[in-house]
Design a protein around this nucleic acid. Structure first.
Lengths: 347, 347
DNA sequence: TTGAAAGCGCTAACAT
DNA sequence: ATGTTAGCGCTTTCAA
């Protein structure tokens, strides 16, 4: 049964029924204080009875703004983005804004296409996460179009953003691993060119190792962001200077690594330490719980939204780096044989 | 630096520059075959050069439809909904539709408010998941408003939906547990009143146990959908007829249960079997991998979108129940001491 | 094959 | 305190 469209009354119809002009009805909804209480009450009654609601499309066309923001993320499959989304959506809704969504799947052409669709819909601004803000066609297009935007998770010298300090956070995590007695540390990530965050985290890890006089951090790049390849993992572990700790650039990747280590009959943390980055909630449910760097994803979304709305209001508040937190789960514990420099591995 | 808005050319301006009427420019974009190739080319050149793109708000107002659909889900924190979202979004985008999003957090008042906002934006239709479709105010409002909609995950006798057969799926899972030697099975869920799916799954589980002559399935209801309470779990396990298998109504809940069992020093699957429902991808990364009922979440979203678009096109295809699949992970294995009634636990 | 004109629903500027 | 009017950008008859 295709629903029969019940007539949606327009402002004109309400005006007639209430015996006033359309402008007055408009005022009843937008500046009710301008109306005589009596008039307002009458209009409200009629509107209520007829089920009238102002048509946002008409209003948008007239006003030149839609009170809608865009949200463009690589995926929602990674909880880090899902959380960010929820934070942004909630903030937007509370402020009377609606959210139009796009998922890019890390694909630049989808990114371009989706952003264009959002612009065509006349969104007032958008929040997005890109691979690398330094050389991103979409960001240039947004600048060219004068479309206000805020980056989430990305750090940029030229565009407003909300993130954590990825470099400092990774630096701290490596310091933590070192304190646990680890010296041979590998950083596992997806393709660096597709993630400025992973790159910054690697830099932070490397810097810390350098400063502490540890051996250089080995970098292992997987083909995917959140899935590890068993062969390359095996190869790394077969080296004479195999790492005692694997620092993964995100939690899903860490989970994948741990699963594959299990398949290789390596126990975490007894045989090798593993930690992640993000602090997704599922990590706390793992057994043992995942050691990681927690970033406040919901708040990143909420703050990004706040920043965007401020810009829409004419303000231009600065970018924000929110605090992170090292989570000592159970997947990275003290090395069994804390022999800093000498290499000795048994059992 | 608040961006300076670069003038966005309207159809009128393009018309002037191309020396044609606005109607002709409109045709160039909507029915190009009507135009003389020469004219079309000229218009396209001018449009290209000026960066013109048709304003969707103007078009929507005129056309009476927005080519935008709504998507209203309880949360994106549960990957089952995130996957569904991605499936729906991708399908919508491919069909030239945009997606406006709302997250309800399982809160009926947020649900009502969000749906109203979506209706105000003149969405053409929406996809949603509700707690219980049988008595849901939002669904009644949608019917009253003549707003086309399709349920995802919910099963309903009165509204179009896309889901799996929850009852049959749970039935199968219990049969699988029974085949592994389990007879005392408990079903763990969140509040049943807030989830028709959990209720159907429980019914399926109970029916199967009855048919197989097993003891009645114990039902343990937690306060939250995806978080188990340690005390009630402990109490259940202290009973003389404690279950040997826990069937959780979703994967996140199963993960939570497993984590709490670990805290109680119970090993899964050696001491007790646990399985979930959903088949979220993180489950496969758990160690051991989670035994569960997999539902095709992405496809549920995609099909729900297809069904909705068909309805918008005047068709009224029937609801769909997509196939599920029992996943034999490592968290539910054969009972160690297959002594149905006696209780004996060692090591 | 193209143009002229009306109007979708709303609001802001300008009356009164 | 309320009404009149014009027009946001677009498409779609109807006419030429």
């Amino acid at each position: 049964m295709p629903d029969k469209l019940p007539h949606r009354p327009s402002i004109l119809e309400i005006a007639r029924k209430a015996g006033v002009s359309p402008a007055t009805v408009s005022r009843a909804f937008n500046q009710p204080e301008l109306l005589r209480p009596e008039t307002r009450a009458r209009i409200e009654a009629v509107a209520q009875r007829s089920g009238f609601r102002p048509n946002r499309v008409g209003r948008s066309l007239r006003a030149g703004r839609t009170r809608t923001i865009g949200l463009l993320l690589p995926t929602l499959t990674n909880p880090v983005f899902a959380d960010c989304f929820e934070g942004a959506e909630q903030h937007a809704r509370a402020a009377g804004y609606s959210v139009m969504m796009g998922i890019t799947g890390y694909d630049p052409s989808v990114e371009a296409e989706s952003v264009q669709a959002l612009i065509d819909h006349q969104i007032d601004g958008l929040i997005l996460t890109v691979g690398n803000p330094a050389r991103n066609a979409t960001l240039r297009a947004l600048d060219a179009a004068g479309m206000p935007h805020v980056l989430a998770y990305n750090e940029s010298g030229t565009h407003p953003f909300v993130s954590v300090d990825n470099r400092a956070a990774a630096h701290e995590m490596v310091a933590r691993l070192a304190a646990l007695g680890h010296s041979r540390i590998a950083f596992v990530s997806g393709p660096l060119t597709a993630s400025d965050r992973a790159r910054r985290r690697l830099q932070g890890a490397q810097a810390c190792a350098r400063e502490l006089g540890l051996p250089a951090v080995t970098h292992l790049a997987m083909a995917a962001h959140t899935e590890s390849s068993s062969p390359s993992l095996r190869k790394l572990l077969a080296r004479s200077d195999a790492p005692t700790a694997l620092f993964c650039s995100n939690d899903l990747l860490a989970a994948s690594v741990i699963a594959q280590l299990a398949a290789l009959r390596m126990r975490v943390p007894d045989d090798i330490a593993v930690c992640g980055f993000d602090g997704v909630s599922i990590g706390a449910l793992m057994v043992p719980p995942l050691s990681t760097v927690q970033q406040p994803s919901r708040e990143i979304g909420a703050r990004a939204c706040a920043l965007l709305l401020a810009r829409l209001g004419g303000d231009a508040p600065a970018s924000v780096r929110l605090p992170h937190r090292i989570v000592d789960g159970g997947t990275a514990t003290a090395v069994a044989h804390p022999v800093p420099s000498t290499r000795k591995r048994s059992s």
